[in-house]
Every structure is written in C-alpha cells, then in structure tokens.
Design a binder for these strands. Structure first.
Lengths: 207, 207
DNA sequence: GTTTAAATTAAACGTTTGTTTAATTTTTAT
DNA sequence: ATAAAAATTAAACAAACGTTTAATTTAAAC
C-alpha cells in the first residue's frame, strides 16, 4: 500500500513541490512529468489519476506532521522548559513540511475534491494531547493558570508561523531579510522566541 | 478607474466567491459567467482577461481590509481596553473579508501571477501603526513591558484566526459547532477572548 | 534462452480552457 | 427619428487539459 519505488517517490516529491507552489489546479501532469523526467502516462499508470496522486501524496506525508517527542519526557525539565521545547519542535516540524500544510489547508477550505482528513485530524489530536499533558502538569504544580482554552493554543503557535510565512515578502522587507537563509534564521530565532514568550505569558496570565 | 457599473460589481462579487472557494485556477470564466448570469465574453469585455479580473478584484477589495478606528481614539479607554477593542476590530474585519484574504494569501505564496501588493502592504503598515501607538502609550504608562516585538503581534492575532478558520472541520467537530452561526459565534466570543487574553498576557509578561 | 510480466513511450482521444470574432440588440446622443 | 456608441450574444478559435491506447522496450521468472 505505502511502499513506493524510486520513480513513484520522485513523482511524489515533484508533485509536492509543484502543488505547494502553484496549487493542484495550477499544476498540470505535464508540468510534473517534465520536472520528474518521466512520461506523462506514468502518473496515471502508477497512481490512477492526478487526483489519486494528490490523495497518495497527502496520505504519505501526514505521518511526517506528527511531533517527535522521545527525549522530551526523558529529560527532567520544568513545565516552562517543556513548553519552550515543544514549541521549538512545532516550528521545526511545520517549517520542514511547510509545502504540505500549504496543500492540505487549501484542499480543506476549497472542498473541490473530497479527501479523507481523518489521519490528519488524528495527528492534530495526538499533538494536542502532548500539549495538554504538559500544561496540566504545570497547572498541578501551581505554575500555570487554570482558565486556559488549551485547544486554542496550537492555532496560536501554528497560525503565527503560517501568517508570517504567508506574508513572507512583507516581513522579509520589514526585517531586511535578504536571503532565504536569513528568513529561516529569523523563524528559528526571533519568531520562535516570540511564540514561546507568547504562550508562556498566556499560561501564567491571571485575568 | 474604480467606478464599476452594476454588471461589473456583480461579476466581482461572484469572482470573489468562486476564487476564494475553488482558487483562481480552479474557477473557469464559464463558472463565473453562469453564476453571474452573463455571457462569458462579458468578462473579457469589461476586464480584459481573467487575470485582469483578479487584479481588479484585489485592488478593489484591499481598501476594505483597513481598520476603522474612528471611535477608538475618541473614547477615553485604558491601553488594555484599547487592545481589546483593536483585536475585536481585527477579527470582525478579517472575518468579513475572509474570502479575500484566502485569495490574496494564495496568490502571494504561489507567485504564478505577479500582482502588485504594495497597496496591501500599505494597509498592513497602517494597521501596524495603530497597534504601535496603543502599545507605546501603554509602555509609557508603565503598564506594558518594553521588550516586545510589536511587528509579530498582528501575525499572532490574524494567524490564530486564520488557522482556526482553515481547520474549520476539525474545530467545528471538537467544539461541537454544528451550524455556521455556531462557528461564527465561537469566533466572536471564545476565539476573540482567547486572542485578547494572549496579547494582553504577552504585553505584561516579564521574561 | 524463452516466456511472461512490468515499465515506458509517442500518439491520439475527447473535454475544457481563455479569448476573439462578427453579428445583433440595446442604450445614448443629437 | 436617426446616427453613434455601448452592451450582449452565439459561435468559433487554438491551446492546454487529464486520460487512454497500442506498440515497444526492459526486467523478471522459469
């Protein structure tokens, strides 16, 4: 089911790039075939259709959106440090899968093609569960306030990142970030710090 | 330049709806013509081309994204109350122009069509200026902390909203929001409150 | 080495795309 | 009422689209 050969992997890689850059409807199978150096018939041959290629791509990439938290529980960190670390994990994870989020978010809101997002929702629920554990730990230690809507915290973390990313030209100009490396560095340093500060502030804020 | 007749206004209205729902490439001029009850040739006749229709739409709608703050300065409010009010203004404004943001954000990131976003950036700079004034007022009164990156606050406000909106099915299910009215109410009450709380917390947070 | 299956290709398929044309109707101006 | 301009239409246009076909090459199995 999910084991692809080298050609299929290459097609998925090119499709991810082009779908995220120009959208599903803005990308033709000829564009994909050209960039992947294959015959246009190979896409139907391997995936059935252009739409099924999109489905295969989404299903294949969703697992990569799950947070990897092996060493977050091992280390004995304060709840504050855990929040910092988790947000850092969030940012690196979404920054590496930025194109995939672009594709999925467009598809969810467009509703033109009906794709099953249960696996996507499951990942979100899983990531939410980790956050919930950390916050409840901080609450039981009396460090965090109790009137927080935990569910709305990931939207703030991810939303801040995505809105920054979506208005890239504006913020690149504002902060004078000339190269893609400059922009990436700003995300991993300043933006990450801003988000960490924001969430920690919220967690201790007494209304 | 910007004065359109009834037919043109109708076309722009339908184009806004369909472009935001299915994307520019996912919408044909026949789709637009059908929904607007006009002949397909009328789009080229009035706007020159499909792409120029998009440009006309964006230029025409950008002014609607500017914050209206007439009565925010008149009233004698505390900086905290002003922040609350400003965020409320932000949310109502973007919620009413949600489709337009959908279109613009896609176009900015896709780079397939090169549209001039200077007017859009100008609006963002203007809205940022208002926020800056309020925060600096609060800082001079010793209410807000001074080590805040003000520029990153709008991304947090708007990003939280958009991420919530983009994952509508997930959050509608999670909060059991069955009708569009339920969802809208949640945005205007709970989500707005969450964002207000978040920003105010950040503004008083001492690291 | 032969047979069978899988991979790859160029070409063609019928649609749909955005745009233009040329004819006609409607509106405006005189 | 007549002439000129603007609005509207159906039809046609070439180009691009996703998909399928049938033939050929490559790989695997025996």
């Amino acid at each position: 089911m999910t084991d692809f050969n080298d050609k299929q992997i290459e097609i998925l890689l090119v499709a991810e790039k082009l779908f995220s850059e120009h959208g599903f409807d803005g990308t033709s199978i000829r564009d994909i075939a050209k960039e992947a150096n294959i015959n246009i018939a190979m896409i139907s041959y391997y995936f059935g259709s252009k739409e099924k290629l999109l489905e295969a791509l989404i299903i294949n990439r969703i697992s990569g959106l799950q947070l990897q938290i092996e060493n977050l529980y091992k280390e004995s960190l304060t709840p504050f440090e855990k929040i910092d670390k988790l947000i850092e994990l969030y940012i690196t994870r979404i920054n590496k899968n930025c194109g995939m989020y672009q594709i999925i978010h467009f598809e969810i809101t467009s509703k033109k093609r009906d794709i099953n997002y249960e696996a996507f929702n499951e990942v979100k629920r899983y990531n939410l569960g980790i956050l919930k554990n950390i916050i409840e730990e901080g609450q039981s230690q009396g460090l965090f306030t109790k009137n927080i809507n935990i569910v709305l915290i990931p939207p703030t973390i991810m939303g801040t990142y995505f809105h920054f990313q979506m208005n890239k030209p504006f913020y690149a100009d504002l902060f004078n970030l000339k190269t893609p490396e400059d922009f990436d560095n700003y995300i991993y340093n300043d933006l990450t710090k801003h988000i960490q500060q924001t969430i920690k502030a919220l967690l201790v804020y007494e209304n």
